[in-house]
Amino acid sequence: MTNKRIRIGMEDSDGAKYDIKLEGNVTREKVLKIFEMMDLMNIEEEQPETTNMDSIGSKIWFIVDKFFPMGKFTSTNILEKYEDEFNEPIKLSIISTYLSRFASKGRVDRSRTGREWTYQTIKIRQKQELSSKK
Rank of each mutant, 00 (worst) to 15 (best):
S132Q: 02
K91L: 11
K66Y: 10
R112E: 09
N77K: 00
F67I: 05
R112V: 13
E36T: 12
F73H: 01
T76I: 06
P69R: 09
I8T: 03
S96C: 08
R5E: 02
L79Q: 05
I8H: 00
E44L: 01
M38N: 01
I60D: 01
S75E: 02
E45T: 07
R125A: 06
S13F: 04
Y82Q: 11
S75R: 01
N52V: 12
L22A: 10
S111R: 11
N77V: 00
S104L: 14
P89E: 06
K72Q: 06
M1S: 15
K17Y: 07
I56K: 12
T97K: 11
F62M: 08
I90Y: 02
I56F: 08
T118D: 14
L22S: 05
D39L: 08
G114H: 07
I60P: 03
Y18C: 05
V64T: 02
P48W: 10
I90N: 01
L130H: 13
Y82K: 03
S100G: 03
T50Y: 15
D109T: 15
K133L: 09
R107W: 07
E49P: 09
E88H: 11
N42C: 15
E83G: 04
Y98N: 14
E88S: 12
E85Q: 06
V108R: 02
K81A: 12
T76V: 00
Q126L: 13
A16P: 03
K59L: 07
R7F: 04
T74R: 03
K66R: 15
L32E: 13
K105Q: 15
I124K: 04
Q126N: 14
D12E: 10
E49H: 11
